[in-house]
Amino acid sequence: MRIAYSPCPNDTFVFHAWAHGRVAGAPPLDVTFADIDLTNGMAERGEFDVLKVSYAVLPWVLDEYALLPCGGALGRGCGPLVLTRDPGDGNGDGSGGDGNGDGGRARAAGLAGKTVAVPSERSTAYLLFRLWAADLVPGGVGEVVVLPFHEIMPAVRDGKVDAGLVIHEARFTYQRYGLHRLADLGEYWEGTTGLPIPLGAIIARRSLGTARLRELAEAARASVRAAWDDPVASRPYVLEHAQEMDPAVADQHIGLYVNEFTADLGEDGYAAVRGLLTRAAAEGLVPPLGPDALDFP
Rank of each mutant, 00 (worst) to 15 (best):
N10Q: 08
D11Q: 10
H16P: 00
H20M: 08
G21R: 06
R22N: 08
R22I: 00
A24R: 08
P27S: 03
P27W: 06
D30M: 03
D30G: 06
D30A: 13
D37M: 13
R45L: 07
G46P: 06
E47A: 14
F48C: 07
L58Q: 09
V61M: 08
E64R: 14
Y65T: 04
L67N: 03
L68A: 02
P69V: 00
P69M: 00
C70H: 02
G79R: 04
P80A: 14
D86M: 06
D86A: 12
G88A: 13
G92M: 10
G94D: 09
G97A: 14
D102G: 09
A108K: 11
A109K: 12
G110Y: 05
G110P: 05
L111S: 13
L111W: 13
L111D: 13
K114H: 10
T115W: 08
T115H: 07
V118I: 13
S120H: 08
W132H: 09
A134C: 06
D135C: 10
I152G: 12
V156F: 13
G164A: 11
L165D: 15
L165F: 14
I167T: 15
T173F: 05
R176D: 14
A183F: 03
W189T: 04
T193S: 03
L195A: 14
G200A: 07
R206Y: 01
R206W: 01
S207R: 06
G209D: 09
R212E: 15
L213F: 01
R214T: 01
E215L: 04
A220L: 02
A233D: 13
A233N: 14
A242K: 06
A248D: 14
V249P: 09
L256E: 13
R274S: 03
G275D: 01
L277D: 01
P287W: 04
P287V: 02
A293K: 02
D295E: 05
